[in-house]
Design a protein around this nucleic acid. Structure first.
Lengths: 230, 230
DNA sequence: CGCGCTCTTGATCTTCGTCAACGTGAGTGG
DNA sequence: CCACTCACGTTGACGAAGATCAAGAGCGCG
């Protein structure tokens, strides 16, 4: 399985951070690291048996929910260091499907065995709760972003959230690459694709951002923040 | 402190379910049960130190986030058996304020001491993860509800989610009492109050629900579901 | 070069936010 | 008991914002 957590640059905030070096093998035994995915490759499919939790090593992924009769809804995006599938672990089946957005690497953790490991490593239990708590906080952030009245505000808020998340790894503060399509952004924010485009134009005209294709420069961070809250 | 978990009807899905009867005192020592709250009473205030987790015993609560410059946004509603404050536990401070919606009872758990208890009760660790996972799933459900395009769809979806949650306690399947004001619903769904009113009228005209004030009867559950997904 | 795909921009129609008026019920004080 | 107020909810009219339809621009790829 060739699992390599020792040399991972994300290990300090991933599961290994809760496990002593000499017992790390007990974790590497239940994880497959650095599995490659190409755009449109699926990590897992909605309603299939949920056995694995995934960690994004590089690239990015999305999750989407297929309702009975409607278009699928993009529920979330996942950046390096973030976990995919957390909400599905209480039930038996995945609640959403997950697909790679770009060329990416992910690590696949057997969930039940991870649960067993928690019994022997109290720090792992603490880490689990902490990660869940943070993820829930993020989810609520996105909720208040999506429930904002104007489309441009939602987009501004979305960009800011994404920037905050990338900044945790990468300190260049004023630049975000949006790896997802406008269609995905639109679905995620509950807007039409055209409205997303127009909202980008609005933010540019107001001098808050610049962009070339999917690369966004924040020219005035505080004004953008102000704009997003109105 | 007079904590009474032994006779609680919700104990089977609350923390006590993970602790053996003879050691239950270790939990009752760190919880104050059945504290009364009246409408507008606060459980906690945003940005203050987050020391306690709350469980709704009866009645209902809401959480709201106060942005820097805008109106507060109602982030969530909480029914009996549900936990309030989970998302704030990774940081030091509460990320939102919580207020009672009606006459209610809540139990107050010291979070740090609860964390210590996890080390001695593996089942409690499992329960924590399960509850977080379920809460995250709910949060994502609400997200896809709020990002629906039409106002009536959002409201339909909101009613269905609320009904599913009340049904877990109370088996009368076709009736929900909405304890929160239209204003709160509007804020939560990202709509104007008037639009919420009109959306109720729409659902009634379509024969999906009936209502008298805040009490909702679902007349055609499957059609309502269909309508909410469009 | 043409073809497909994504993104953008423009024109029109629908929906929702805003402002206003009105209805209802609870609480208050005469 | 009845007016009065006040909070809450509903309904109508109108204007603004966004969805939809249509067209065109930019780009990678065969």
């Amino acid at each position: 399985m060739n699992s390599d957590c020792e040399n991972c640059t994300l290990a300090y905030r991933c599961v290994p951070s809760a496990i002593s070096a000499k017992e790390l093998f007990r974790f590497t035994n239940i994880v497959s690291t650095n599995e490659p995915y190409q755009p449109h490759d699926k990590l897992f499919e909605q309603s299939t048996k949920a056995d694995y939790l995934y960690v994004v090593k590089s690239g990015s992924f999305k999750t989407s929910i297929q309702g009975s009769s409607s278009n699928p809804h993009v529920n979330g995006f996942f950046l390096p260091g973030e976990l995919i599938g957390m909400e599905s672990m209480a039930g038996n089946n995945y609640l959403s499907s997950s697909t790679a957005i770009e060329n990416s690497l992910a690590c696949k953790i057997n969930y039940r065995q991870l649960g067993a490991l928690r019994k022997d490593f109290p720090l792992l239990s603490d880490l689990s709760v902490k990660l869940y708590s943070q993820t829930l906080a993020l989810s609520q952030n996105i909720l208040s972003c999506v429930s904002k009245q104007s489309a441009a505000q939602r987009l501004a808020c979305f960009i800011l959230i994404l920037m905050k998340r990338t900044k945790q790894l990468n300190q260049q503060a004023s630049e975000v690459y949006l790896s997802m399509s406008r269609q995905d952004i639109a679905s995620h924010l509950g807007l039409a694709v055209e409205t997303v485009s127009r909202s980008f134009s609005t933010l540019i005209k107001q001098g808050l951002i610049k962009k070339t294709n999917r690369l966004i420069y924040i020219t005035d961070h505080s004004k953008l923040q102000l704009f997003s809250t109105h």
